[in-house]
Every structure is written in structure tokens, then in C-alpha cells.
């Protein structure tokens, strides 16, 4: 079976500057692929080439087995795209803009648009210029989803969305997968990719460092932990716990990076009288270093 997305040794140069270099990856049908990397890593460059806004300097892209440039029109009929910096005509309402794009696609399923708007809590009667960033993003999501495309290509889709809408977006992506759809979603948030993706590609400084199944990454990814406890014995016990690194101590606050299964940490912490405990996702650079540090 042919992959839905296939990049073969793709390089994009902007003059002397490297956008991405020698990237090869495949996304199979029915998979949700997370494209993860820090800002400026090459995510938007890659996505721009997937939708034929920019063309590879070297290498080639195939989508649905079709050539990414020569067959771009046919490909665009079958994809839904949301740019990271999504913008529409400021003077049009959401409905007018969606009607316009719908007509360019041969018609608009108004009932489905209403359903999406309701789910994402989006007011389509307001002019685009009066909308907040989050509400603009919602209009963008609807425009990408309204024709029920086979492949979704999203660049940082949840930026600006409140947590409830983010959750609804995740549900929509899961439904898309259940109906046999494929998605390519870029993000700089590991937690978001963990939530919805089956596999992940790590991109850094224009290069694809790794392509992994999500389950393996989830257990390896380090977290930043902060514990507030007056008992000085906890610091010593934590220091002995496998997976605890880079610990700092300020008065009664302990901060450290923790990698691996979370349960031993919780078991240890629960045996002390804690004032506070926060577990947060480590920044992407730390994740890279922990997972791929040795390989680099």
C-alpha cells in the first residue's frame, strides 16, 4: 500500500539559508503524524511544500501517490490545510469566507459547517478583523475540515485555542482517524502530539532526527517536576531515584527533570507531607537531549 505522504530526500534552500535538508519520511494511510520541532526547525517549510506553496530545491514529494507539484491541483481537492499564521479577508465574515472557499471547491455543506461551528464554539457571523486569534483559528479549522478531506495538514493548529476547544479539536482529529483519514500535524508541544498522534517525526535545524511510534516516546519523554516540602529527607530520597536529574534546591522547593515511568516518583512523593507538586512537560530541547542525546 502506497503511503499517503512521501518525502524523498527533500531539501529546501532559501538562497544560502537551509529550510530543511535531505528529509525523507512516510505517513501511512489512517495514521496521525505529529511533526515536532522547536520554532525555526523547518516545520512550516515542510508543510508549505506539502501544499505546494513552495517547491523543493532537491528531492520530491508525493501525496496520494501523486507528484506534489505537477498534480498539486488534484491533491488540493483532497486535503484540508490550516496555516500557522492563518489569515483571511478582514472585511468578510466567517460565513462569507467559508462560502467563498466552499464555492471554489464546488459547493458548501452548510449543515456540516454549522455542526463544526457549534462544536468549536465559533461565531461565523462576525467579521474576521473583529475576531481574537483563537476565534480566527477556529474559522481556519472549519475551512480546513468543512469538505471532509482525506488528509489534514495542520501547522500549529491549537495555538490560541482555549483548553476546552483544544479538547474538542482533539476529538475531531480522533473521529477523522476513525473514519480512515490521515493527518500531518506540526507542533512544538510534545503533550499535544502525545494526545492525538500515532507517530512522531522530530525535526531540528532543518533535519529529521527521528521518526518514532508515539507510545515509545511517551514513556521516554522527561518532565520538569517541582516539589515543595519541608522535610529535608525527600531531597536525599529523590537523589537516589532512577530518572531524577538536574535537581536544584531552594529553601523547601526541589526542582528536577524526571524521565521514565511516573509511578515510582508518585509513590515516593506520596510518602511525604507535600505542600505542592507540579509536573510539567519539559521543553522540547530537553526532550531532544534526553531521548537522542547519545545518538547525536
Amino acid at each position: 500500500m502506497k503511503p499517503v505522504i512521501e518525502l524523498n530526500k527533500v531539501t529546501k534552500l532559501y538562497g544560502q539559508t537551509v529550510g530543511i535538508k535531505n528529509v525523507s519520511l512516510q505517513v501511512q494511510s489512517g495514521r496521525i503524524f505529529g511533526f515536532l520541532g522547536p520554532n525555526g526547525a523547518g516545520k512550516t517549510t515542510t508543510i508549505s511544500m506539502l501544499v505546494d506553496l513552495t517547491r523543493p530545491t532537491r528531492g520530491n514529494i508525493k501525496i496520494f501517490g501523486l507528484d506534489g507539484t505537477a498534480d498539486s491541483l488534484e491533491i488540493r481537492k483532497r486535503i484540508g490545510f490550516l496555516a500557522g499564521d492563518f489569515a483571511l479577508d478582514a472585511g468578510l465574515t466567517g460565513w462569507q469566507q467559508l462560502e467563498y472557499f466552499g464555492n471554489l471547491r464546488g459547493g458548501l455543506d452548510k449543515a456540516y459547517v454549522r455542526e463544526l461551528a457549534e462544536r468549536l464554539n465559533c461565531n461565523l457571523n462576525r467579521k474576521f478583523k473583529t475576531l481574537s486569534r483563537g476565534n480566527r483559528q477556529k474559522v481556519g479549522l472549519i475551512s480546513a475540515l468543512m469538505h471532509k478531506p482525506e488528509l489534514l495538514i495542520f501547522d500549529e493548529p491549537t495555538s490560541g485555542l482555549d483548553p476546552l476547544v483544544q479538547e474538542e479539536f482533539h476529538n475531531i482529529i480522533r473521529e477523522h482517524k476513525r473514519s480512515g483519514g490521515t493527518a500531518f500535524i506540526s507542533s512544538h508541544l510534545l503533550s499535544e502530539v502525545q494526545e492525538i498522534c500515532d507517530e512522531v517525526g522530530f525535526v531540528r535545524e532543518g533535519s529529521l532526527i527521528a521518526q518514532e511510534n508515539m507510545g515509545e516516546i511517551a514513556t521516554l519523554a522527561p518532565r520538569r517536576v517541582r516539589v515543595v516540602c519541608d522535610d529535608a529527607g525527600l531531597a536525599q530520597k529523590l537523589g537516589e531515584l532512577k530518572g531524577v536529574e538536574d535537581m536544584t534546591e531552594t529553601k523547601s522547593t526541589l526542582s528536577f527533570t524526571y524521565g521514565g515511568n511516573i509511578n515510582p516518583l508518585l509513590k515516593l512523593a506520596s510518602s511525604y507531607k507535600l505542600k505542592d507538586l507540579t509536573v510539567a512537560e519539559a521543553d522540547l530541547e530537553t526532550v531532544f537531549m534526553k531521548i537522542y542525546g547519545k545518538a547525536k
Binding site: V51, L53, L73, E74, R76, K77, I79, F81, A83, D85, F86, A87, L88, D89, F101, L104, R105, G140, S143
Partner: peptide, 14 residues
């Protein structure tokens, strides 16, 4: 420049 052309060009139009 203001990003609206990109939204149009990803529609299925030449």
C-alpha cells in the same frame, strides 16, 4: 504580505 493569498492558493484552483 498579510497572509490571505496563502489561504486562497491552498484551495483547488490553479
Amino acid at each position: 504580505g498579510d497572509g490571505t493569498l496563502q489561504a486562497l492558493l491552498v484551495q483547488p484552483v490553479k
